[in-house]
Design a protein around this nucleic acid. Sequence first.
DNA 1: TATGAATGAGTCTTCATTCAT
DNA 2: CATGAATGAAGACTCATTCAT
Lengths: 230, 230, 230, 230
Amino acid sequence: MADRKISETPGSAKKDPTAAARRPGRPRSGKKGADKRELLLDAALKLFAQYGIAETPLSMIAKEAGVTTAMLHYYFKTREQLLDVMIDERFQPVRAGFTDIFETHADDPLMAITNMAQCMIDAAEKYPWVAPLWVREVISESGMLKKRMEERNGDKNRKIVQECIIRWQAEGRLNPDLNPALLFISLFGLTLFPMASMKMRQGGVSPISPDMLRKHVTLLLFHGVAPQKP
Amino acid sequence: MADRKISETPGSAKKDPTAAARRPGRPRSGKKGADKRELLLDAALKLFAQYGIAETPLSMIAKEAGVTTAMLHYYFKTREQLLDVMIDERFQPVRAGFTDIFETHADDPLMAITNMAQCMIDAAEKYPWVAPLWVREVISESGMLKKRMEERNGDKNRKIVQECIIRWQAEGRLNPDLNPALLFISLFGLTLFPMASMKMRQGGVSPISPDMLRKHVTLLLFHGVAPQKP
Amino acid sequence: MADRKISETPGSAKKDPTAAARRPGRPRSGKKGADKRELLLDAALKLFAQYGIAETPLSMIAKEAGVTTAMLHYYFKTREQLLDVMIDERFQPVRAGFTDIFETHADDPLMAITNMAQCMIDAAEKYPWVAPLWVREVISESGMLKKRMEERNGDKNRKIVQECIIRWQAEGRLNPDLNPALLFISLFGLTLFPMASMKMRQGGVSPISPDMLRKHVTLLLFHGVAPQKP
Amino acid sequence: MADRKISETPGSAKKDPTAAARRPGRPRSGKKGADKRELLLDAALKLFAQYGIAETPLSMIAKEAGVTTAMLHYYFKTREQLLDVMIDERFQPVRAGFTDIFETHADDPLMAITNMAQCMIDAAEKYPWVAPLWVREVISESGMLKKRMEERNGDKNRKIVQECIIRWQAEGRLNPDLNPALLFISLFGLTLFPMASMKMRQGGVSPISPDMLRKHVTLLLFHGVAPQKP
DNA sequence: TATGAATGAGTCTTCATTCAT
DNA sequence: CATGAATGAAGACTCATTCAT
């Protein structure tokens, strides 16, 4: 869906991203089906999430992927383009997933909102890079991906969500004193942000699991912190 | 309280930080009382918040402060130590402020929680660096200050807060299904995180103000998203 | 005549260069008769002339010719050998043309000299790469082709010309105070050098044309700058 | 006289270039009086002349000057700026010297023209870099300094000279059939070009000396190639 | 105190070259 | 024939750091 010309590089025919597995083609068998390009993106994503984008030199990505830095440039011409590709092929699909929900549940505010929160947690659980990168690099004012994201997406999604909220508030189906813009960002703050700040890697030893977060957030969104009234 | 060796440099005697004015010593009179060291920290903090720590070379800080990089090294020996000092003298006091509240309002859960949220917003409003740096560098798993913070503070504060919450829950004064650890982090996610992701600079043209956030968060914490029941 | 080992690659049998048409063999019919190898040389020559040799990477040549760099290596093995081939097949014939004249007009000094100048202008007009490359790369002390040219040709041609000049001076048919070696180089300086320094591309909008240069040089060589004496 | 902002680097106060000796200041004694910056320019100029600009990496200059490449960047921020500085501080003064003559001898065509040629030879003799760099990089269409020169100087000088020539031709003091623009470039072709193409380094073993060139060019300009008529 | 000069190490990038297919 | 993939080597540039003054 990205309509910008990006990465005049090998194999640049746009693929349905994040879904390397589904693709047909020569090699196969699980992780092996992904072509080199995809593996490089994987490595980059992993390290960017782990150390931050600015803190991760290409050489580190190359080493992680077992190639030379020249290889990285072979597939992504420049560091900047690697970031562009990363957004187009990995971030955008995830982002789309976030806001689709509001269109699906256009008539059920609480469902829409809690569902959206769940979706965010799902994504962060499925792709370990989602939470840290989204928090640090996409949403933070100083993030390296913020401008890129906005260029590609504008405020389209944000606007859609906000309009829904405003409408629901007008219809009395949502607390009218909440700030629509802030409600949107609050959802990130209640989901991705905790995911980014705690070690909840799958099967980790941490006492906190995504499931606990799911429950916690739903509760908080439905009732606030006060004890349930009879 | 810091037990690590830090910057055996001029004026390195530990001072009560963020309160340069109160300090005795040579120069005085308002902004003039701040010695060079303080000004350098100011510059660093400002730029770190604006561009991110990894993205801000010492030369940029030096230029901002109107000195040479050699000067920076004179005062802080190394880049790492600059970060250490920054934490000790600027972050710690702010952090302390966050959790003191729980001790003050030890008997009033809702008061404590909303007050804490307010305090965070206050701090973020007063010091523009608080929100961006806390979100990106202190809380995020990949943040450059996270380890430093933990080394200095351990989980002391977090533990205090969690114990309070657990007690309150046991006493039926707080929704017992909320996760104590997550409630703590949720407060950050509802306050500093939005502050970091939106332009709310004082006097800005943005439609979102700290006051709006204050109201929004209180509401959310008290009642959740649902419309007020009669 | 080339005595160096050159490009043990396909079609590397030495051909009479610049005369691809005359060559026997497979394809034929005008521009079509030029085989790939010739087209690659064309592209290289064009870009070398336009940007300079050192400034022109093989990738640029490949793109210009619509092939891959691997192809270039297939035909010329290495960059160095491309240069060697270029000289042998394109430069040498042109150079030969320059000095033949002195043998043709061995008995008419003025004719020989002016004819030689005309020939140089002719060549530069016919092959747009002649002037820029000869000036920058063949004659200049620092030129990348200078050594190659000398290896192949030695001073043979230069010597032939100088001997003619010396003889003519002895016979009183040429100003005896002129320096033979310098007279030779002066001819380049009066023809190729201006051609290389001005945009005189055929059909260009520039006020200077090869014809104007022809006239100018003849005049200068015959009479100097002074106004014609009666 | 250069009015463009260049090289925000150490010691960037514009100095009267090419005349490092005259400058006051600490160290002294011949070559030692030149500060580092000047020495680096010297090294660069020497190598650029010897190998060509594009063929000379900064590392080569650094080695020649006995410093690191970081040092070069310390004094000249970037390679491009090194070239800018080179032009402003070394080339411009020389260029100015070329055309001043036409204003000095505004009333004596032959004197002006031959003097100008002598001046060019003088400059090329005094500064060994003048001839090769001027021919390859300043005058050649593909030269790396051509655009820079034009940016700084426009065609001002060229125009002045051409107007003189045109006037003289109108007054019958110069062969009216010569092309003014070409006459100007011919002077370069008869002086700097030969200087660039032959080894005439001071004290060299070559049979050709600047003095021989001076005589040769004067003769050619005055009388052409034909033998003196009685 | 303060700085100009200097540098080693590291980053991004380009390029000629090779090789299996 | 032709190319995509891959790389080693080198180039420009940045940056934290040191040191003599």
